[in-house]
Design a protein around this nucleic acid. Sequence first.
DNA 1: TAATTACATCGCAAATATACGATGATTATT
DNA 2: AATAATCATCGTATATTTGCGATGTAATTA
Lengths: 110, 110
Amino acid sequence: MAYSKKSEFKDDEIAIAEFAKAISHPARVAILKEVAMRQSCICGEIVEVLPLAQSTVSQHLKELKAVGLIDGTVEGAKSCYCINWAMIEKINQLFNQFFEKTQCCKTGCS
Amino acid sequence: MAYSKKSEFKDDEIAIAEFAKAISHPARVAILKEVAMRQSCICGEIVEVLPLAQSTVSQHLKELKAVGLIDGTVEGAKSCYCINWAMIEKINQLFNQFFEKTQCCKTGCS
DNA sequence: TAATTACATCGCAAATATACGATGATTATT
DNA sequence: AATAATCATCGTATATTTGCGATGTAATTA
């Protein structure tokens, strides 16, 4: 592959791809749902309901946190995660914009 | 890694992840936009505007087609691609549902 | 019919992602 | 203080994705 070409695209294209990537694995979709269903969520609770090892869940949580979909704070020995609702809303709008912008070009091809 | 765990998740989680994956690369976001902006679109036209080789673009087109986001029909020596608006709408709703369902659990954590 | 155009597919190299056990760091419990 | 619990990170194996040149196929043009 030599080099990744990702950076050669436009900012909005990269942004959409980045957020899509965050939920492009069922485990992360499931984790998001689990965190959302609880007011605040301990890592161990997620490990219990998912078919993944603790280290794997921790890694997925890290990725979700990296794009800002969840927040994480240390509470004693535990780590408390919760949804970043502002970011959820932002991404929802980003996707809507993308699909709408796409839709407005609709002219009925073949 | 031994095995992929993707199949061990719920159908709706897998579905969301699958569509998210389709637009999880800037190239495919860009391609979707290009195809949308034209009534119908020849592969070569996309190759001209993207910083990717023809074979690479062809591969991305194949992926978008596989999830149903675009349709492709052969027209003589050329291949004509166009957006599958019904699928765009379906995915848009899928994402909206996901984010809404997530939102309704909102109770204000920490 | 030969050459050209348009595109898909193959084969391969390199980059990334996924998954886990082991280990480390930190706090809680005994 | 020793032990246990909770979680992050590291190292590593494997799987998947990305990208391209080369090649194959089909239609178009010369």
